[in-house]
């Protein structure tokens, strides 16, 4: 067993946290869940919810997944994945918010309005058709009654 100590993953391998840490983290997660639900009724929007979710995620990753006490190598794997996700969000977001400046026809608001308009026209047509049908029915009833 000569290689034993050399291959050990540093300080983190067998770090056993005290039970109180687990319950403190769990308590914090419950409180944060309560806050995020209450805050949603105040309609404070995206930012607050994302910040709270990120704090919750950091608690789970750091303590329940032991990343705080583990070899930094695993943190690097996680961070590279998060960096790729950041790039993914950033470029899709840039595309969507700026597309209208370059190609006005592809402006998403434009598309949305156009579709809403088509839908409104269809509804109006359907309503007109339904009204016409009702009139016909009334006429038919009058005919049979008379």
């Amino acid at each position: 067993m000569s290689a034993d100590s050399n291959h050990n993953q540093g300080h983190g391998e067998h770090h056993v946290m005290p039970l109180s840490t687990y319950f403190a983290v769990f308590g914090a997660l419950l409180v944060l869940t309560g806050i995020t639900v209450l805050v949603s009724f105040l309609k404070l929007g995206l930012l607050v919810a994302v910040v709270i979710a990120s704090i919750k995620a950091a608690l789970v990753v750091g303590y329940f997944m032991h990343l705080k006490y583990d070899d930094r190598f695993y943190s690097v794997i996680l961070l590279s994945s998060l960096f790729a996700i950041f790039c993914f969000f950033l470029f899709v977001f840039l595309d969507f918010t700026s597309r209208g400046m370059v190609v006005p026809e592809e402006e998403t608001n434009f598309l949305r309005n156009e579709r809403a308009m088509i839908e409104r026209l269809e509804q109006e047509e359907a309503a007109a058709a339904a009204a016409a049908e009702e009139e016909e029915e009334e006429e038919a009833e009058e005919d049979t009654g008379g």
Binding site: D4, F73, A84, F88
Partner: peptide
């Protein structure tokens, strides 16, 4: 080589898988 090496390899594989899972869900 050793059991700790085996455990570290398994954990690295798991973290790579989890990194991939995050990318998958990000889509």
């Amino acid at each position: 080589e050793t059991l700790p090496q085996q455990e570290a390899s398994a954990r690295m594989g798991m973290w790579l898988f989890l990194g991939q899972e995050l990318l998958f869900f990000s889509a």
